[in-house]
Amino acid sequence: MDSKNPPARRFVRLGETERRAIQVWIDGRAAHALEGDTLLVALLSSTSHLRHSEFSDGVRSGFCLMGACQDCWVRDERGQRLRSCSTPARDGMRILTSAQEVEWARLA
């Protein structure tokens, strides 16, 4: 991240700053979080939005923050969908915020 022009953040941490720092990767870019953060907190503490909508050109930032609304889905580096509001961030975790195209097997 450019220290002169940090990215806009949706969340700003005001407390619990004594927890151990961890690093997660968001779309190939290093971001910092604290041990015990959910992916949603880690992502929105580093970016202005969570992901782009798969149905329109709008951005999404989570809605209910408790696992009920389906708005906070992201993917890990293997393509597995994760609900960011209830998935703990782990040191070294790599997250993709945009849907990856599915490659269908070609039938011969």
Rank of each mutant, 00 (worst) to 15 (best):
A105T: 00
A8M: 07
Q23I: 03
V59C: 12
S48I: 00
S84R: 09
C72D: 15
D2I: 05
A31N: 02
T38C: 07
D91E: 12
H49W: 13
N5L: 00
R90M: 13
E18I: 01
D37K: 09
I22F: 12
S98C: 03
E77H: 05
R51T: 14
A21Q: 13
R106S: 09
E35N: 05
F55T: 07
R94F: 01
R10Y: 15
P88V: 07
L96S: 02
P7L: 10
D71P: 00
F11K: 06
A99I: 01
S98Y: 07
A8S: 08
L65V: 04
E16F: 09
D91K: 05
T47E: 13
S56Q: 06
D57M: 06
L65Q: 14
I95Y: 04
R20P: 03
N5G: 01
D27V: 01
H32R: 13
V41E: 15
F63D: 10
N5R: 02
D27N: 11
L65T: 08
N5V: 00
G36N: 00
S53T: 11
R81V: 01
G67M: 11
R78T: 01
A68T: 14
M66I: 05
V59G: 02
M1H: 13
D37E: 15
L65S: 04
S3C: 02
R19H: 13
N5P: 00
A42E: 11
G36F: 04
R106A: 11
R106G: 05
D91A: 08
M66K: 08
C64H: 06
A99E: 09
R51G: 05
W73G: 02
F55L: 10
F63I: 09
G28V: 03
Q100R: 15
C64E: 11
G92T: 08
V59Q: 06
M1D: 09
L44G: 09
F63P: 00
E54D: 07
F63V: 07
G92E: 10
D57R: 14
Q23F: 06
T97K: 03
R20Y: 04
E16A: 07
R13E: 15
R94T: 00
G67P: 12
D76W: 00
E103Q: 15
G62S: 10
R83D: 08
P88F: 05
E77Q: 03
D2R: 13
D71F: 01
C69E: 08
M93C: 03
L39W: 04
L43I: 15
H32L: 14
D27S: 01
R78Y: 06
S3F: 11
A21K: 13
D71C: 02
S3K: 11
D71K: 02
G67W: 10
S45L: 06
P6D: 08
N5S: 00
R20N: 06
G62W: 04
Q23R: 14
R78F: 00
R51Y: 04
S53R: 11
A89N: 09
R94Q: 15
I22H: 10
C85Q: 14
D76V: 00
S61F: 03
A8D: 13
L82Q: 03
V41L: 12
R19Q: 07
S61H: 02
R51H: 11
A21F: 04
V12G: 03
R75K: 07
H32K: 13
A68H: 14
V59F: 15
C64V: 07
K4E: 13
